[in-house]
Amino acid sequence: MNKPNQPGVLPVNPVEATLKPFPQRAAKICILLPLVIVLWNAASRALAPQISFLSTPSGAILSAALCLVITVAGLTFGVIALLGVHRFGRKQILGRALIGMTINGLLLSILVTNFLAGRAKAQAQLDQLAQTRQAVQDLREGIKNDTSPNATSTHMEKLQKQVETAADKTTGPESAIMRANAVFLKQMQETSRTFEDASQRFEPEEILNLASSTTREALVAKRTATQDYIDANVGLRAFLEGGIEIFRAELVKQKLAPKDIELATASLHKGFGDKLPLLFRVRDSITDYASALLAVVNLLEENLGKWSYDEATEEFETEDEILRAKYISLLEKIDVAADEQNAAEELRQEMLSR
């Protein structure tokens, strides 16, 4: 027969009876928390390829902050454990608490140093990114205001070097994206330089100058300069058309995570892709204009001896009415192409000024 509880004595909870004193548990937690930090660091390194945020400066700072919190918690549990030595004795408390606090103290000093260094590095990267954005703005202003023959490629080369510097000073996905941008800009700079060099040899007024077109050698030189100009322009258009895929391929080469590749290419398309129709219009108008000039050169060369240049009237003279009609038709085509080129260029300048 069960005896009733004695008056004034509370019944003992079986669960509480099996629990060790809290200072002993605190000492155990104090010595185990550094292991949690080790496991977290190992897990974050393993997950970094799948979770790109962990490789960013912000991710590193967040991880360091979490480890700091765990370390401070470990020291706190160690202090609580030591405060219980007087009541519960040293057994399973003093040794564990002292060892745990020593380990946590060492980790704290390392983490604080790394945290401060990481924050400084993150700030430096933010400053570098701000400088790169300013370089992009300077590029736009420079191209708009600089009328020198190689303005675009010169300013683009400066931006490319700025982006390369930023890539060297950043880490993680940002660095990979910067390097891909640098490759993209380098190829654009090369195609732009080729076009600019061809532009310097392409002189429409001289090409249409009949006085200097009376020999086959002169016409061959004009045809070569015009064809080089057309080819360079077509090459620049081809780059613009495939530029985003070039950028994507470079991101893959940099081993960027697929999700980050899509985000980066979407960002490029947002800032670059919506301008492509106008840029294509500019390139196509240039090709049409130069092709019309080339057609005139070919017509003159194919019909050497059937036409002449009247120095008095400064006009094209021929007794072949069909040849005259073809020549006049090509001049009209040149005028139409020139108007379209001027209109497209005005829109491009407006786009650059925004």
Rank of each mutant, 00 (worst) to 15 (best):
A238H: 06
Q123D: 14
E190S: 13
R45D: 15
V12D: 00
G235K: 08
R348M: 10
L98Y: 09
G59M: 01
W307G: 09
L236E: 07
V69R: 04
D197S: 07
Q137W: 04
R179S: 13
S52F: 01
R25S: 13
F88L: 05
S308C: 08
K121V: 13
D335Q: 13
R96E: 10
A117N: 07
S55Y: 02
G74I: 06
G59D: 02
V136Y: 15
Q254H: 03
E174K: 07
A151K: 02
L94R: 03
E317I: 13
F22G: 12
V72N: 02
R281W: 00
E314S: 12
A167D: 01
L347K: 11
L82E: 14
E16T: 01
T147E: 08
A225F: 07
A124D: 12
A232R: 01
Q200C: 06
S329Y: 00
I286M: 13
D310H: 07
S291P: 01
K306D: 15
T18A: 10
H269E: 10
E203W: 15
D127S: 13
A325M: 00
K121A: 15
L185N: 06
T154K: 04
T265K: 07
L304D: 06
L68M: 10
H269I: 00
Q92L: 13
K28D: 10
K326E: 15
L293F: 09
H86Q: 12
P4F: 10
A344H: 05
I80K: 04
P21K: 11
